[in-house]
Amino acid sequence: MKQTENIIVGISIGDLNGIGGEIVLKTFEDSRMLEFCTPVIFASSKTMNFFKTHFNSEINFHVVNKADQIAEGKVNVLNCWNEPVIIDFGKEDIKIGAYAIKSLQAATNTLKQNQIDVLVTAPINKHNIQSKDFNFPGHTDYLAQELEGESLMFMITDTLRVGLLTDHVPVKDVANHITAELIEKKINTVYESLKKDFRIQKPKIAVLGINPHTGDNGVIGTEDDEVLRPTLQKIKEKGKLVFGPYAADSFFGSNNYKNFDAIIASYHDQGLIPFKTLSFGQGVNFTAGLNKVRTSPDHGTAYEIAGKGVADENSFKEAVFSAIQIFKNRFDYEQLTSNPLKKHQKNKA
């Protein structure tokens, strides 16, 4: 892993008819961002200049055609296509979806070749990206195939981290997906991420139940008693500080979540509804468990406000900061674990 100065942040532009272009511009109009990183936007100069004109931005782009032309201290645009693109803000368009995938694939390949350090993805439309060549529910599933490791959707802020046992799974199928093997795999991923990515030495993890009231002793389903509870007990016996299952309906309202370093929800909305309610647009979606760092804002394409100049860039900016910090934390962790003497000297100091 490279040193942590001049971290190169690759940015996939997302759905061009959504708010992705606007929040990217707003983020890097602040020249102070270039003190933290070198951004590389995977799109085209024509497209980015369209956004610049539309949103009256004064940002300056450094246009490149290859990754080895990336310039430090500048907002780089790497051309992934050359033809003009008709952008119609707020409209779902399968042609626009194809450009979102071109950007994502180019950024991912560049990440795999270590020519960028981290990846921050602007929002896509999960419907218009589908094709015979790209058949994934979203970013997480695609990156899980392309990058090494066990991926996990991890929603994070400075004070709250929520992981998922199942992510883009229909509610009717959730219980069938949750097995002892899956539970152990996801908890291990969260545990290792808390240590490597967030510098927490002895993570405390809470797990939410599958059924209402964690099944009420089998009255409302048996999965919590037959699958979840015994698996958590086995994991705890191995020395991990894992607790639960907790009834999801009262867990966040009672502020119990503040007692843990991370919470693992059984399914998508069980975790993301309280997370997004509490994070107020400051949240970040981090794909934990992979050998590369990828983050994104905690919102979608927001077609209803696209092109109006009113989109809030804070979640995207937080995604950039989080990617940089996680990259640095991983670097420090690898330095310490590969050099026991350095770790001893640090503890002694």
Rank of each mutant, 00 (worst) to 15 (best):
E237L: 01
Y267T: 01
T159R: 09
Y246E: 11
K195F: 10
I205G: 10
K202V: 02
I178V: 09
K196V: 06
I210C: 07
N176P: 11
R161V: 03
P274L: 05
K258E: 12
I178D: 02
F154H: 11
V219G: 06
F243G: 02
K258Y: 09
S151A: 12
I210W: 06
P212I: 09
L278Q: 01
L278Y: 01
F251V: 02
H213S: 10
H168C: 08
I178S: 00
N217G: 08
I263T: 13
A206G: 06
N188P: 08
I220M: 15
A265D: 13
Q201F: 03
P170T: 07
E184W: 12
K238Y: 01
I235D: 06
L208E: 03
T159C: 06
I200H: 14
H168A: 07
R161P: 13
F251T: 07
T222S: 08
K185N: 13
D249F: 11
L165E: 05
L160W: 00
I205A: 12
T214M: 03
I205R: 11
I220V: 07
T231I: 09
N176K: 15
I220R: 02
Y257C: 03
I156E: 00
E192P: 04
T222R: 12
L278S: 03
L182I: 12
N259S: 13
I183V: 15
T179N: 08
Y246C: 07
K172I: 08
K240F: 07
L147P: 01
L194M: 14
E184R: 12
A206V: 09
N256F: 05
L278A: 00
R229Y: 03
M153Q: 04
E237C: 00
D225M: 14
I235Y: 04
K276L: 03
E184N: 14
I273C: 01
